[in-house]
């Protein structure tokens, strides 16, 4: 009897420990962003005297004025990041699905070798060839051109890999066969029959590619030197410079503006995003 009671007590303590740890970690995830949001509304003087506060103030517009009169132009950064991210995502998802379809639906001699190459290069990050990439882009005059950031997205090995894994169970080849019998061309079959069937997989990949492109710092930082071409993360990197040294409120506001679209996407789509992460992890 008493043994049972003590074990019950033990499991209760264990349960409390679990919730305490989880709640602490949840707080740790939120805390920096809460400070960011609250301080975005406070004046630099208020932050100087009490850096930590959970009560919003009324200096939001004032901070906005300070922020935008210097090098930080949220609308320019937003527009540039949006152009790059949307174009790169659309191209990447479409052509990766097309490439995956080429692997899944057709038998061609070099297919096996091609797929092995995709597997092999999937893990090699673009940053290690960045020096050659920059020099090449400089020679053909594509620095300060968004095409240099958008076009490479057409060849995305990990997206091809994911779409291939997705297509094998989700795409019944009978449908393709019957489309052929009906006399539909191969390209039309892909666009009108295969693409709609792959929509859920494409949507998952689209979220991840978009977020990756939006957050990307290294490549844009190398290629874009003209201020009017800067992306959001590049604008952010200015916030730690001398220009904003004592403008604490403006810095917090700038940070808030860069993550606003990501916050919106995340809280609307978190269910799909987390399911997508889980799917990606067991892809091997």
């Amino acid at each position: 009897m008493s043994q049972k009671a003590s074990s019950r007590k033990g499991s209760l303590a264990y349960k409390i420990l679990q919730y305490v740890v989880c709640i602490l970690l949840a707080f740790l995830s939120l805390f920096p962003f809460i400070v960011m949001i609250v301080n975005a509304t406070r004046s630099s003087n208020q932050i100087q005297s009490h850096a930590l506060s959970f009560i919003p103030s009324h200096y939001l517009m004032n901070n906005m004025k300070v922020l935008t009169t210097k090098t930080f132009h949220p609308l320019v950064g937003f527009k540039n990041s949006a152009i790059i991210s949307i174009c790169a995502t659309a191209l990447s998802v479409y052509f990766s699905t097309l490439t995956a379809y080429a692997i899944v639906a057709y038998d061609w001699k070099l297919k096996k070798g091609f797929f092995a190459v995709i597997m092999a290069i999937m893990m090699i990050p673009a940053t290690v060839s960045s020096i050659g990439f920059y020099q090449f882009m400089y020679k053909i005059g594509l620095t300060n051109n968004f095409a240099a950031l958008i076009l490479p997205a057409i060849a995305a090995p990990s997206t091809v890999f994911f779409m291939r894994q997705y297509m094998i169970p989700a795409l019944p080849m009978e449908i393709v066969q019957s489309a052929r019998i009906d006399g539909a061309g191969e390209f039309r079959t892909f666009n009108q029959i295969v693409l709609p069937l792959c929509k859920p997989g494409m949507a998952t990949q689209a979220i991840f590619i978009f977020v990756f492109q939006w957050n990307n710092l290294f490549m844009p930082m190398i290629l874009l030197t003209q201020k009017e071409k800067w992306t959001m993360p590049m604008m952010v990197s200015q916030l730690s410079g001398d220009m904003y040294k004592t403008e604490y409120g403006a810095v917090y506001l700038g940070l808030l503006l860069t993550v606003l679209p990501i916050f919106v996407i995340y809280f609307l789509l978190s269910k799909y995003i987390i399911a997508g992460v889980a799917l990606g992890g067991v892809k091997e």
Partner: peptide, 10 residues
């Protein structure tokens, strides 16, 4: 999912 550049400066 939050921009790493933003997190660093935050």
């Amino acid at each position: 999912i939050i921009t790493a550049a933003t997190i660093a400066i935050l």
